[in-house]
Design a binder for these strands. Structure first.
Length: 541
DNA sequence: ATAGGGTTAG
């Protein structure tokens, strides 16, 4: 019976059969083994069924399997973690008369999944022993909670502690590098993967593809992809999304065609998001419509609100803002913030204050705390010169206690350190030189026809003041610093937390030509690669 | 016989 129940724990659909086997076993008066409970609890965990888990918990108590058996207690703990019931997990942990490393690690994971990395780290620190799995739980916990710096730090400490790194441990570090987007650390992690032969592992390889793509090294991502001995839906989805974010839509679509035509790897909803984003970032409206139409029947993928958001983005970016609005209205499922946000973004590009109002009103209800939509709406009104409306939006923001998060850019220096710049900020030690270089650079650009795009400034101030504000944009400061410190042949890589503005985009293009330098900017939307006066985004961003 | 893994969207 126990073997049969164990065979059921692989699939969430087999929870009921395994419970039925258990009751049959009880009717025949066969006493359950501790392993029987472990197997049953694993089924409940796989099905994420808290009711079934709690029932098994009380049965284990009454039949004496818990808390006396460590394995059963650990299985209970794992079940509560899988069902994201942190409190019950903690209670089981506290009631255990004996705990091993597995119990400690399970609870670390429970706290990490709940987003409480402080408690997770404290628990990890007080755990009496730490093996590679425990360390990995800490590293990936940080990575999952958008704390990539801490994740890498923990990874380094794990190595220093003399723990042998395996594939799973490395994946956490790779994912952290993807979030950081820092090239030198990405190379370092890749070296570790190579040295240990981990690159052939599908999960590590897929993570590396994603990491290189997010670091702006799309050709390296492709190389890792091409050299992988085995690829699955994650690998393809990462590569397609990476190509999409770099504006290489044709390659993304070609890869998708290869995937569905020449492999046994079935695309999923994430893959299709990559494909639709690729179309969007290249203005390929007809192709996007085609893939969107094919999703349900050809690939058996239901169209989610996320897919609609991609379509709204695609249509809206291409100037079909009214059609995008009609698509939202025709949706069979409830549009979420992403859908309205895409519409609002389109209104910004094509100056549609009325539709913007509709979209923003929905967003203010759906995501009242999200600052982005207020700023977008206010900027749309500002470009239309509707200053009264602008101040109304600003007032609304103030009333809700929302503060704009400051624009910032980062660039990795040759010292390997990441240098941070805020808009109009003079705190960098080399700020004077940066400012001087910018002045001189702007002068030179003007000789080749550069005119500052004053409309990129959304404040109602004089033209002179607008030009001064433009010069202080964080990505320009980062650019100047990079020009000041770079070696010949270096690619300048800048990361920005917000979308790059039109004026900075123009300046990057011109500088790439005048200074004969390649510049890669990662903004919050995508990558821009500037070479010889041209950007890979071809104006779509 | 129990613990740790990769992708997406304004």
């Amino acid at each position: 019976f126990t073997s049969l129940i164990r065979a059921c724990c692989s699939s969430p659909d087999l929870l009921l059969p395994s419970l039925r086997l258990f009751s049959l076993m009880r009717r025949r008066r066969l006493p359950p083994l501790p392993f029987t409970f472990s197997a049953l609890l694993k089924s409940a965990a796989a099905a994420r069924s808290l009711p079934a888990g709690a029932l098994l918990h009380s049965l284990a108590l009454s039949l004496g399997a818990f808390p006396s058996h460590l394995f059963v207690a650990n299985s209970l703990l794992a079940m509560y973690v899988a069902c994201s019931d942190l409190r019950s997990a903690r209670r089981v942990f506290d009631e255990m008369p004996l705990r091993d490393l597995i119990s400690w690690t399970s609870l670390v994971v429970a706290y990490a999944r709940s987003g409480d990395m402080e408690s997770a780290a404290a628990l990890f620190a007080s755990s009496p022993a730490k093996d590679v799995v425990a360390w990995t739980a800490l590293v990936t916990g940080y990575a999952h909670n958008a704390m990539p710096g801490e994740a890498l730090d923990a990874f380094v400490r794990m190595r220093d502690a003399g723990v042998t790194i395996d594939e799973v441990a490395l994946v956490g570090a790779v994912s952290a590098c993807a979030q950081l987007g820092a090239v030198s650390r990405a190379r370092w992690v890749w070296d570790i993967a190579e040295a240990n032969g981990f690159g052939t592992n599908v999960v590590v390889g897929s993570a590396l593809v994603d990491m290189y793509a997010k670091c702006g090294l799309i050709d390296d991502a492709r190389q890792v992809f091409d050299e992988m001995p085995e690829r699955n839906v994650y690998t393809y989805s990462s590569m397609i999304a990476g190509l999409a974010s770099h504006g290489r839509a044709y390659e993304a679509i070609a890869l998708f065609r290869e995937m569905v035509g020449a492999t046994n790897v079935a695309p999923n909803r994430v893959t299709l998001i990559g494909v639709l984003t690729a179309c969007s970032h290249a203005g390929m409206v007809e192709e996007g419509r085609f893939f969107f139409a094919q999703m349900k029947d050809k690939y058996r993928i239901p169209r989610s609100a996320d897919h609609y958001a991609c379509m709204v983005d695609l249509l809206g970016r291409a100037g079909l803002v009214e059609e995008a609005l009609e698509l939202v209205k025709s949706m069979p499922i409830k549009p979420h913030g992403g859908v309205w946000g895409a519409l609002l973004g389109a209104c910004r590009i094509h100056n549609k204050p009325e539709i913007a109002k509709t979209a923003a009103d929905r967003l203010f209800k759906l995501e009242p705390e999200c600052i982005g939509s207020y700023i977008l709406l206010s900027n749309i009104y500002a470009s239309a010169g509707m200053w009264d409306e602008v101040s109304k939006v600003r007032k609304l923001m103030r009333g809700r206690g929302l503060k704009k998060n400051p624009a910032a850019s980062w660039v990795e220096g040759i010292d390997g350190l990441v240098h941070e710049f805020f808009a109009g900020d003079a705190s960098h030690p080399r700020s004077r030189e940066i400012k001087k270089l910018l002045e001189e650079l702007m002068g030179r650009l003007k000789l080749v026809g550069y005119m500052p795009i004053l409309s990129s400034v959304v404040y109602d101030v004089s033209d002179g003041e607008k030009e001064r504000l433009l010069k202080g944009h964080s990505e320009k400061l980062a650019l100047a610093f990079a020009l000041l410190t770079k070696r010949n042949g270096d690619v300048i890589r800048i990361t920005k937390n917000l979308r790059i503005c039109e004026d900075c985009h123009l300046v990057m293009s011109l500088v790439s030509k005048v200074e004969k330098v390649e510049i890669v900017v990662r903004d919050n939307m995508r990558f821009h690669r500037f070479r010889n006066g041209e950007c890979s985004c071809a104006g779509f961003w």
